[in-house]
Design a protein around this nucleic acid. Structure first.
Length: 127
DNA sequence: GCATTGACGAAGG
DNA sequence: CCCTTCGCCAATG
């Protein structure tokens, strides 16, 4: 996979529709690599990509992912608290929770139960 | 082209 | 322990 340790500091800022963002593309790839039944955080992905401080961009990438034809399991990505902060960005607010539930991930009060146990760190798992 | 806004996160009060 | 501030950076007004 083209993820390696590429620095995203100077990735070409191109147009979403025409060229591929290295950043968004990588985020999408990582998201697709998340095993079923596991979850990760925006920060973990950002860290893996080298932009640890820019977790917000990961969230933004997810937003772009939604708009992408590719299917991104964005429901497996939550914030560092394990809360479904992005549920409102799905078709319906309950979609994210339903998808997680289908993967045996229990959610209560918008929070993933045993989040630490289900947490999947790309840095640790992929390297 | 400056100002505002995020599906975040760490640090400070 | 809860709340506020700040940093990060692309997209949008």
């Amino acid at each position: 996979m083209p993820l390696n340790n590429k620095k995203l500091n100077n990735y070409k800022s191109s147009t979403a529709t025409t060229e591929k963002y290295s950043f968004f593309n990588d985020v999408h790839d990582v998201a697709c690599l998340i095993p079923k039944g596991r979850v990760t955080s925006y920060g973990a992905i950002a860290k893996y990509l080298g932009t640890k401080m820019s977790a917000r961009m990961v969230g933004w990438a997810m937003n772009a992912a939604h708009y992408s034809p590719k299917k991104i399991p964005a429901h497996r990505v939550v914030n560092r608290n394990g809360m479904l902060s992005g549920k409102m960005h799905f078709k319906t607010p309950e979609t994210m929770e339903q998808l997680l539930l289908k993967e045996s991930i229990k959610v209560k009060e918008d929070k993933i139960i045993d989040f630490e146990k289900l947490f999947w760190d790309p840095l640790k798992e992929l390297s």
